[in-house]
């Protein structure tokens, strides 16, 4: 990429490094101040950061407003849960199934949804996620509405012990970093450029001769599979999976994390997940009616702060380097 504005690139890189460093240091800091539960809180935040990051690939770079992203979270979680139900706790098998199942679902959903665009696309992805949600409710063998308990976390040939909170934390951290790296590579590759081109001018890209449906569908499937991994990790943290994991409001929350952090940045959604879940925690400590405050905050963010937190931080950096 051409780096015309060194100020922007360096401040973005700086913000990214600070986030990574802070996330890497959460467990030792939490141990020092004796508040171990922060490890759990941040594990959860990072799992949602993975989901938000995967959504950002198709939303921020491909312009596909998927309002059903939580479905893949649910599919990933149920893949672990259902295999564990039958006594299969081999982690490679569980995560492999989670990736495969969410990719297949994304292939089917994308194949139908990507034939449409705009408002139709938003509603159809929402409707398909609802379909999977109701399907999970009707699965009485696997607990139906009440959900499914998981006896043991995924077993990776005894290499890592996921029942240890700190180990789980660093596994989730490693996955997040891996996906951040892969995501960066992806969006800056030739493939990524085609997707981004399709976002800014679909007709022109089609005229050049790119089979856009295939490109977009591939991106859609990749994002779905990534989110499936987040779901499998979530099942490991909660040792429980229920239809509520893919309630439609969850899809809205993941979307909100992307916007709050700054879409089309990959790092932004991580910040967005931190901000959203931290805000939720703080507000719900404050009052039981926290949603009455959260709702208007979201409206204000959408109306007045479109660049998100990451854009804000980067801008501060630019102004400083100019002055």
């Amino acid at each position: 990429m051409i780096m015309r504005k060194p100020g922007v690139v360096s401040s973005r890189a700086l913000v990214t490094l600070v986030i990574i460093a802070v996330l890497a240091l959460v467990p030792p800091v939490a141990a020092t101040i004796g508040e171990g539960f922060y490890v759990d809180v941040f594990t959860r935040i990072m799992i949602f950061a993975i989901a938000a990051l995967s959504l950002d690939i198709i939303l921020g770079y491909g312009g596909m407003v998927s309002f059903g992203h939580a479905a893949y979270l649910g599919i990933g979680a149920y893949a672990v849960g259902i295999l564990a139900f039958y006594g299969v706790d081999n982690g490679f098998l569980q995560f492999g199934t989670a990736i495969l199942a969410s990719a297949v679902a994304a292939l089917f959903i994308g194949f139908v949804s990507l034939r449409t665009s705009g408002i139709y696309f938003i509603m159809i992805t929402l409707a398909f996620a609802q379909m999977i949600y109701f399907l999970s409710i009707s699965l009485n063998t696997y607990g139906g509405d009440n959900g499914l308990n998981i006896d043991r976390p995924s077993d990776f040939a005894r290499l890592v012990n996921l029942s240890n909170a700190t180990t789980l934390y660093y596994v989730v951290f490693a996955v997040l970093m891996l996906f951040l790296f892969l995501g960066q590579r992806l969006v800056n590759s030739r493939f990524g450029m085609v997707i981004r081109g399709a976002k800014s001018n679909e007709r022109r890209m089609a005229a050049i001769g790119f089979p856009l449906l295939r490109y977009k569908l591939t991106a859609f499937v990749i994002a779905g599979a990534m989110c499936g991994v987040a779901g499998a990790l979530l099942a490991n943290q909660d040792l429980f999976v229920a239809p509520a994991v893919m309630q439609w409001t969850r899809s809205g929350e993941i979307l909100m994390m992307v916007i709050l952090g700054g879409m089309g940045t990959l790092v932004g959604p991580i910040l967005g997940a931190v901000a959203f879940l931290a805000l939720e925690t703080v507000l719900s400590d404050l009052t039981g009616h926290w949603q009455a405050i959260m709702g208007p905050i979201l409206v204000l963010v959408v109306l007045f702060a479109r660049d998100g937190i990451f854009g804000l931080l980067s801008r501060i950096g630019v102004e400083r380097s100019r002055g």
Partner: peptide, 26 residues
């Protein structure tokens, strides 16, 4: 919201849902 894109409309109205659900509970 009229001049905004559909994504903004979805998110802002999503915020309104949270608000109204809670107000009704209050």
């Amino acid at each position: 919201l009229y001049p905004r894109d559909h994504l903004d409309q979805v998110l802002a109205t999503f915020g309104l849902i949270l608000f109204f659900n809670e107000i009704v509970r209050m």
